[in-house]
Amino acid sequence: MRSLVATTAVALSVVLVAGCGTDSDSGDAPASSSSSTPVAAEPAVAPAPTVTPAGTVIEVGNEPEGVVIGTSGIAAVGVRRPDAITLVNVRTGTVIRSIPTSGAPRHLELAGPDGPVILPLETSNTITELSFDGTFGPIATGVGDLPHDAVRTSDGTLVGTNEHGGGALFIRDGKLVKSLPAGPPQPGGVAAVGRYAAMADVQGNGVFIYDGTTMTEVASKRIGTRLTHAHALGDGLVAFADTDGGAVLVERITPQVVDVSRIEAPGKPYGLSYDARTKTLLVTLGSSNKLRLVDMTDPAKPRIKGDVPTVQQANSVAMDPVTGIVAVTGSAPGEASSLQIIPADQLPR
């Protein structure tokens, strides 16, 4: 049975300057429906679950997508129509507040262990940051065409993916200081590895590496079928969801891209998260309504711990780095307001 928690609206007088972007399609969709446009990897269209999702499910807002959790146990969840960030205490399972934004959030990243949250707002071509107390940081406007994901490299540069414009975006002190053309013609997820940003291309062109300090492309490699998300694992490693290839690919960034291992993940793998304490990789299997946990103690020989039943079309996942509680967003029609919270003792060991 679904546990419903009413969202407490908080009126915040925060003004973000909107751009000309139109609302994006769901998933990492192609920039055009033209037959000449290469097909991009997209999230699964999942059937209704046949197994009750683990843990509890609460309401957080419409069409939840990206989710991150800080060391305080507060989760930030990106929702749409109306566009907002919903803050949730995953340790108590309660909604704290909803913070309106002037564009639709998609991927969310943490700039530090307890924030701020790096917040690309796709439909207003804006990238900003948001602390867990609801305070916005510098606001960079006029940023590319549908900025999809962004990470902070070790020198403090925000490196973002210009999904519909191709290539990379570089932001310092709240200003777009440089943009590079493709590179990846339609970049999706990105992960920070020291001074480098490792970027996945959803049209099947593999991985592109950018140096945040010099703001240059320094390496690339064609891997997998069509990638979507990327997540850093520490020690120079990055996991890439090969959504159309049914696998997660683990690569070492030197900054050259070096193959380390392949993890079988049938069912359109999409969302990724990582628990450094237990060296556990979490992967959403969107089309089968499952969350897969993988032991990464030996990155060259990953071991699948097991699967957990999720809400319909589990797109994104995050883990509380202190308690091990997991949060999963369900993004399918009819489950569009769901955030699944799974206690650590319900996860495979």
Score class of each variant (00 low, 15 high):
residue 292 R to M: 14
residue 298 D to A: 07
residue 276 A to N: 02
residue 259 D to H: 11
residue 267 G to P: 11
residue 292 R to D: 00
residue 267 G to E: 12
residue 289 N to P: 02
residue 265 A to D: 07
residue 286 G to E: 14
residue 269 P to R: 12
residue 278 T to I: 00
residue 259 D to R: 04
residue 275 D to I: 06
residue 266 P to D: 09
residue 288 S to I: 15
residue 265 A to M: 11
residue 272 L to E: 10
residue 298 D to G: 01
residue 277 R to D: 06
residue 293 L to I: 00
residue 277 R to C: 01
residue 301 K to G: 05
residue 276 A to W: 00
residue 266 P to Q: 12
residue 293 L to E: 01
residue 268 K to E: 05
residue 264 E to G: 13
residue 263 I to V: 15
residue 263 I to Y: 12
residue 256 Q to H: 04
residue 282 L to W: 11
residue 255 P to T: 08
residue 255 P to Y: 01
residue 271 G to R: 13
residue 278 T to D: 14
residue 288 S to L: 08
residue 250 V to E: 13
residue 286 G to L: 09
residue 266 P to C: 10
residue 277 R to I: 01
residue 283 V to M: 13
residue 267 G to A: 12
residue 268 K to V: 10
residue 268 K to W: 03
residue 271 G to A: 13
residue 301 K to E: 11
residue 267 G to W: 11
residue 261 S to D: 04
residue 272 L to S: 07
residue 255 P to F: 04
residue 296 M to V: 08
residue 296 M to F: 02
residue 272 L to C: 08
residue 290 K to Y: 00
residue 282 L to G: 15
residue 299 P to Y: 05
residue 279 K to T: 10
residue 261 S to H: 05
residue 297 T to M: 04
residue 286 G to R: 07
residue 279 K to Y: 02
residue 281 L to G: 13
residue 280 T to G: 08
residue 262 R to G: 11
residue 257 V to L: 01
residue 252 R to N: 05
residue 298 D to F: 00
residue 293 L to D: 03
residue 267 G to H: 13
residue 266 P to M: 07
residue 261 S to V: 10
residue 267 G to I: 12
residue 281 L to E: 11
residue 284 T to S: 15
residue 276 A to V: 08
residue 281 L to D: 09
residue 264 E to L: 08
residue 281 L to H: 08
residue 294 V to Y: 00
residue 293 L to M: 06
residue 296 M to I: 10
residue 253 I to A: 06
residue 257 V to S: 02
residue 261 S to F: 07
residue 284 T to M: 12
residue 259 D to P: 13
residue 273 S to K: 09
residue 300 A to P: 00
residue 271 G to L: 10
residue 264 E to A: 15
residue 296 M to T: 03
residue 286 G to I: 10
residue 272 L to I: 10
residue 258 V to M: 05
residue 250 V to M: 13
residue 291 L to F: 03
residue 262 R to K: 15
